[in-house]
C-alpha cells in the first residue's frame, strides 16, 4: 500500500514538472495558435538565468524567481515584436522562424558561457524531505507541486478575470471584430507571448536543481510540453493540467513496473492512438465561433 501511495506521489511530482513546462506553451499555442519551437530554449534560458543569478550575483533560487520571469519574458517580448509579429497569419513560416530562433539561442548560450553542464543549488530550506501521508518525500518536489498549481491558478485568473485576458479572448474569437472595438491586438499578442515565455523561464529555473543545465536541454522539454498540450486539448488550460498529471502518473507507473524506456515508448504510443480517434485532445474549450 505504501508503495502504491509513493508511486501516486511520484506521478504527481512528474506531472507537476510537466505542467510547469507546458503551461507557457499552452498559453502561446492555445491562445495565439503559434507553434513555438523555441519554447524549450526559453526553458533553457530560465535555467541559465538561475545559474547566472546564483553564481555571479549570489542570489538564491527563490529570490531570483521574479527577476528570471522578467528577463525571459523580455526575451519573449522582443522575439514576438521583431520576428513573429512580422509573420502574422503565416503559420508555417512561424514554425520555421521559432525553430531558427531556438537554434540561435542555443548557440549564443554555448558561445557565451561554454557547453559545460551547469547546476543550480537546491534552496537550503527545501533540501530536506518531509512527511506526506506517512511517507518521506523530497521537500523540493512538494514545493514544485505547489508552485505549479499556483502558477496555473494565476494564469487562469489572468485569462478569465482581467481586462487583458478578456481582450485576448476577444482576439482569439475574432481578431478583426476585436480590433474594431479598439483592442490593440499587437500589444496583447506581444504581452501574451512574453507571459508564456516568462512561464517557460520559470519552469527552467525551477527544475534546474533536479536536472542538469546545458545549452541543448530544451529539446527534451519542448517535446514533453507539446505532448501535454496536444493531449489536454489546445485552448483548454484545465485540459493541460489534467493531461500533465495523467502523463505523469502513467509514465511514473509504467517506469516503476517496467522501466523508463518502455514507459516513454508506451506513453507516446498511447498519445498517438488517442489523437487518431480524438484529434481535438481530451478536453475541448467550447467557444462559439
Amino acid at each position: 500500500m505504501d508503495q502504491f501511495i509513493e508511486q501516486i506521489i511520484t506521478g504527481l511530482s512528474i506531472g507537476s514538472i510537466l505542467l510547469l513546462v507546458a503551461l507557457g506553451l499552452s498559453i502561446i499555442y492555445g491562445s495565439m495558435g503559434i507553434i513555438n519551437l523555441a519554447h524549450g530554449e526559453f526553458v533553457m534560458l530560465g535555467a541559465y538565468a538561475a545559474w547566472v543569478f546564483h553564481s555571479y550575483l549570489g542570489l538564491g533560487l527563490l529570490a531570483s524567481l521574479v527577476p528570471i520571469f522578467l528577463v525571459v519574458a523580455a526575451f519573449g517580448w522582443v522575439i514576438e515584436r521583431y520576428v513573429l509579429s512580422l509573420l502574422n497569419n503565416r503559420p508555417l513560416d512561424t514554425i520555421l522562424a521559432t525553430w531558427g530562433v531556438g537554434i540561435m539561442l542555443q548557440q549564443a548560450v554555448r558561445l557565451m558561457v561554454g557547453s559545460e553542464l551547469r547546476y543550480v543549488q537546491l534552496p537550503p530550506a527545501l533540501s530536506g524531505s518531509m512527511d506526506v501521508f506517512g511517507l518521506s518525500v523530497s521537500s523540493y518536489r512538494v514545493f514544485l507541486f505547489v508552485v505549479s498549481l499556483a502558477l496555473f491558478a494565476a494564469t487562469w485568473l489572468l485569462m478569465n478575470r482581467t481586462t487583458v485576458g478578456m481582450k485576448l479572448r476577444a482576439i482569439i474569437q475574432d481578431r478583426s471584430v476585436a480590433a474594431s472595438f479598439g483592442v490593440n491586438a499587437k500589444r496583447v499578442y506581444a504581452l501574451t507571448f512574453a507571459y508564456g515565455a516568462g512561464l517557460a523561464g520559470l519552469a527552467g529555473a525551477l527544475v534546474s536543481p533536479l536536472k542538469s543545465v546545458s545549452p541543448d536541454m530544451g529539446t527534451g522539454y519542448v517535446v514533453d510540453a507539446f505532448m501535454v498540450v496536444v493531449l489536454g486539448g489546445v485552448q483548454s488550460l484545465a485540459g493541460t493540467v489534467a493531461s500533465a498529471f495523467i502523463l505523469g502518473e502513467l509514465s511514473g507507473g509504467i517506469a516503476f513496473l517496467q522501466n523508463d524506456t518502455v514507459a516513454k515508448a508506451l506513453v507516446l504510443l498511447a498519445i498517438v492512438v488517442l489523437i487518431r480517434f480524438r484529434p481535438e485532445g481530451l478536453f475541448t474549450a467550447r467557444v462559439r465561433a
Binding site: 508503495q3 509513493e6 508511486q7 511520484t10 511530482s13 512528474i14 514538472i17 553542464l117 518536489r141 533536479l210 536536472k211 542538469s212 546545458s214 536541454m217 527534451g220 509514465s251 511514473g252 507507473g253 517506469a255 516503476f256 522501466n259 523508463d260 524506456t261 514507459a263 516513454k264
Partner: peptide, 30 residues
Amino acid sequence: VPLGHSEFSSVINKIRSTQPNVIFSTVVGD
C-alpha cells in the same frame, strides 16, 4: 534508462523498495 533521461523518481522508488547495498551505475551524460 533512455539516453538523456532526466526523471529518476520512479527509479528512486524502486531503489527504496529493493533496498540494495550498492547502486552500480553506468548512466552517462547529463
